[in-house]
């Protein structure tokens, strides 16, 4: 625990973060590219699914997108906690950089899901429980981005967005359960999914097809690869944000100095 503390403290210095991330970035990107290429290669050379045929190929990008959408929100929540509780100087940079990337993956999960749904279900959009809860996750992302952009004062915006992210992460499980249902057999707990009240569940399979090993391993490789891609983009975004703040600090210092010079000149 002590050692971990000291590592995060070391990383707290933005200058050190810039140096470290600069060396790390190409490696992260390289690993991401290799894993994605390998995962997709194995996914595309595997035999087609006996039920879904070739459309199963969409799974290798759809499932990682959905996973990264959720992981992105968790990352924002952890960063927000770091900002509000520990006042970690990089926590807000991390939360701000993660939002658009997480939102992009969530949107991609929706788009690929709907393109996968058209041949399977016959329409681009069904109010399938999982698809709906991903849509609501996307709305939460929109809320975070909208709140941050509509408050002028940057430090105020950071803290308020962090509060919203933590509220969101508390309510998100309830949203998920209310939409998707919950079943814990050994507790005897059974909460039905929301859409079972509205439409017969025989229209589409809510449990999804069982996954075969020839599909599972490529999926795991591609999910891991896209996770590395997420962190590559996130690190790049954080570096950009640190640079942006330096530019801003320099500009403010310049304006202050110019004002001082004017004051001195006026006094003479």
């Amino acid at each position: 625990m002590m050692q971990k503390q000291s590592i995060t403290q070391k990383l707290a210095n933005p200058t050190r973060f810039m140096a470290l991330s600069g060396t790390l970035l190409p490696w992260l990107a390289g690993i991401a590219v290799i894993l994605i290429a390998y995962g997709l290669y194995r996914g595309w050379t595997a035999p087609p699914d006996y039920q879904q045929g070739e459309t199963i190929r969409i799974m290798y990008i759809h499932v990682p997108s959905a996973w990264l959408g959720m992981m992105g929100y968790a990352l924002i929540a952890v960063s927000s906690f770091g900002l509000l509780v520990f006042r970690h100087p990089l926590a807000d940079v991390s939360a701000k950089a993660a939002a658009p990337i997480g939102a992009a993956f969530t949107m991609l999960a929706l788009v690929t899901g709907s393109l996968w749904g058209k041949p399977m279900w016959g329409t681009y959009w069904v109010w399938d429980a999982r698809l709906t809860s991903v849509l609501l996750l996307f709305f939460l992302y929109l809320g975070l981005i909208a709140l941050r952009t509509s408050i002028e004062d940057e430090s105020l915006a950071s803290k308020l967005t962090a509060v919203l992210a933590l509220v969101g992460v508390v309510i998100l499980p309830f949203i998920k359960i209310s939409v998707e249902g919950l079943s814990i057999p050994w507790l005897g707990l059974e909460i039905p999914a929301w859409n079972t009240l509205h439409q017969p569940s025989s229209v589409f399979r809510t449990d999804g097809p069982k996954i075969h090993a020839s599909q599972l391993y490529p999926l795991l490789y591609s999910a891991l690869g896209f996770t590395f891609l997420f962190f590559t983009l996130h690190m790049k975004g954080m570096r950009n944000e640190i640079l942006r703040r330096r530019v801003k600090a320099l500009r403010i210092a310049e304006v202050d100095r110019a004002r001082e010079r004017e004051a001195v000149a006026a006094a003479e």
């Binding site: 087609p48 045929g53 070739e54 459309t55 190929r57 969409i58 990008i61 759809h62 997108s65 658009p100 990337i101 992009a104 949107m107 991609l108 788009v111 690929t112 393109l115 996968w116 058209k118 041949p119 891609l229 983009l233 790049k236 975004g237 950009n240």
Partner: peptide, 28 residues
């Protein structure tokens, strides 16, 4: 051969690539 639903498979990969490439390009 991508079967009868080739257009959907290609379209989903195309959108996916387009969004991620533009995101990366914008960041750089």
């Amino acid at each position: 051969d991508l079967g009868p639903h080739a257009a959907f498979i290609v379209a989903s990969y195309a959108v996916f690539t387009l969004v991620l490439v533009s995101l990366t390009a914008w960041l750089f």
